[in-house]
Structures are given as structure tokens and as C-alpha cells.
């Protein structure tokens, strides 16, 4: 599990974020990017029960709305009206 996949991760830019708990800047990649024991999965499409059939790029199907459509696993879902956590 990575910091960037955690609910406590605050987005900063394409290479780093901030941990909402520790207030430390944490990298997305490489050394120091592994999450700590407080990890909880962030709401993204890839963690949603309505997400299925992802391809190698993480692009799959969203079945949460009246009209099915494609989406991608890393898409933020905090604001999605139909997000249902599949795990965590």
C-alpha cells in the first residue's frame, strides 16, 4: 500500500502529497512512498463496487450510474454520488 492510495493523502502535485495525520510531505514513488499502519483506502473508482473489467491501463467500466460508461481506476471518487467502497 502506498501513501497516495490512502484516505489521509492530500494531493500536492504529480510527485508528492501530504499526510493529513503527520503533516509530512510524502512521495508518490520510490523511497518513502509506502503507507504506514494508519492506512485506509482512498475513494477512487478502482476501489468502488461499481467498477469492473479494468484493462492493463486501469481503464474499466463504471456500472454505478443509469448509463454505463468507461472510467479509470485512479479517478478520484470522493465526489461521486454513486461511490460504494468495495474494500477497506
Amino acid at each position: 500500500m502506498k501513501h497516495v492510495e490512502c484516505i489521509n493523502y492530500i494531493n500536492l502535485d504529480c510527485e508528492k502529497g501530504m499526510c493529513a495525520l503527520s503533516k509530512q510531505i510524502v512521495p508518490i514513488d520510490g523511497n518513502g512512498s509506502d503507507a504506514c499502519g494508519h492506512f485506509q483506502p482512498a475513494p477512487v473508482c478502482g476501489n468502488c463496487a461499481c467498477f469492473a473489467d479494468a484493462d492493463k491501463h486501469g481503464i474499466g467500466t463504471c456500472k454505478g450510474f443509469e448509463k454505463e460508461n468507461w472510467t479509470y481506476a485512479k479517478c478520484g471518487a470522493f465526489c461521486c454520488e454513486h461511490y460504494k467502497a468495495a474494500r477497506g
Binding site: 500536492l12 502535485d13 501530504m18 479509470y72
Partner: peptide, 16 residues
Amino acid sequence: DIYYLLKVTADMESAY
């Protein structure tokens, strides 16, 4: 202090 470290970043959420 954080701003000076920031990289200008593009992502696809809004466009999607």
C-alpha cells in the same frame, strides 16, 4: 514553503 516545492501538474479528473 510548500508552494516553492510544487511542480505544475496536469491531471484528467475534470476532463474525464
